[in-house]
Design a protein around this nucleic acid. Sequence first.
DNA 1: TTTACTATTCGACATGTTTCGAACTATAGA
DNA 2: TCTATAGTTCGAAACATGTCGAATAGTAAA
Lengths: 108, 108
Amino acid sequence: MSNSKIDDDRLTEMFKALGNTHRLMIFKRLSSCCQPGTQCDLEQAMAYSVGELGEGLDIASSTLSHHLKELHRSGLIEMERQGKRVVCWIAPETLNSLGNFFNADIKR
Amino acid sequence: MSNSKIDDDRLTEMFKALGNTHRLMIFKRLSSCCQPGTQCDLEQAMAYSVGELGEGLDIASSTLSHHLKELHRSGLIEMERQGKRVVCWIAPETLNSLGNFFNADIKR
DNA sequence: TTTACTATTCGACATGTTTCGAACTATAGA
DNA sequence: TCTATAGTTCGAAACATGTCGAATAGTAAA
């Protein structure tokens, strides 16, 4: 019904990705632009570089890289090189899809 | 702000709990009563016994028990002995809290 | 081309997770 | 009290994850 339904395997991977303190912090930081009730432009406004996302996390850059790869593999974030940096942003449909899971998709 | 805000550690544990195929199946089964837009009586209507939750999952009962313990530890489900059986149900605030996370709580 | 900056890959290690079967506990009923 | 049913706990094995430092790769600027 919902056009943002995700299959169970994908969903499991997303939850697994969010089920780690460091990755959850990263995800929250990337989502922090969106004001309740507004439709923010995720793709443009909230691109953080890998380095920025690591600030305050106190982990090695190789570990950070690993976590970002996991978030990307699960479909939660997008990544793109821009010059010297690699920038990351929330995969646009993600917030809605996951919100729907707890509000509607899960129900029959 | 929200009265159903969950702290990050709790949230991480919940996502970790849902980041496993078997536990996600169990969680979905327990949530399956709720029709979109309605307020179902989770505490009463949707108590499944441990045995019922294991049907079709093809895992040992000890493994099932372990998964239910994880779901309970994370705060996603409640459990109670009723005679010979132990029944499980979704922790009432859970669906809303998690739905809010993706819709509002995450934003600043 | 050399250097500096930014990020990823690799290999290794320690720690966690998933799973099972066997042994155990709790309850209800014959 | 004995038996059957329903779950849990325990210990062990196999596998997965998180972490680091060292080595590597891509880009920009001197």
